[in-house]
């Protein structure tokens, strides 16, 4: 099933990587550089199937974005990526409602595996 996916990451190479990996599987990907940008995009069109959020970003971090998204668009599942994955990061992300966690650096297979696991769970649910 092809999805509409919103990627939020301040690093261009990560954004591009995500676009390439996800597009290779036929997903429709939109990538933005920050949390505010993501929110304004969602306000116009909230019909995304998945949000991939980086934690460490300038101005406004991933946790803050997750909180807002969970409040306003609770039906959109979120996957967290982090270049500094600590047990704290994982626990907090889960608390804020993340359904997946992909530590950086990731290979295309790792990212797709994570998405597949989410899809299976969604299917089961």
């Amino acid at each position: 099933m092809k999805k509409r996916i919103l990627v939020v990451d301040d690093d261009a190479v990560v954004r591009t990587s995500c676009e390439r990996i996800l597009a290779s599987e036929g997903h429709q990907v939109t990538a933005v550089t920050g949390a505010d940008h993501a929110v304004s995009l969602l306000e116009r069109d909230a019909s995304y199937d998945l949000l991939i959020v980086d934690i460490k970003m300038p101005l406004r971090d991933g946790y803050s974005l997750m909180q807002e998204v969970k409040r306003r668009w609770p039906f959109i599942p979120i996957v967290v990526t982090s270049g500094y994955p600590t047990s704290d990061t994982i626990v907090r992300s889960r608390e804020l409602g993340a359904v997946g966690f992909v530590p950086k650096p990731f290979s295309p297979a790792e990212m797709l595996d994570a998405l597949n696991r989410i899809s299976h769970r969604e299917d089961e649910a």
């Binding site: 190479v13 591009t16 390439r20 982090s82 270049g83 500094y84 950086k104």
Partner: peptide, 24 residues
């Protein structure tokens, strides 16, 4: 280390992604 790891992991993601893409 935390800072460096974080900064390195982003480009590494790129390297991994594009290498794999090429290999495909």
């Amino acid at each position: 280390a935390a800072g460096v790891a974080h900064e390195i992991n982003n480009p590494l993601t790129g390297v991994l992604t594009f290498t794999h893409m090429l290999l495909r």
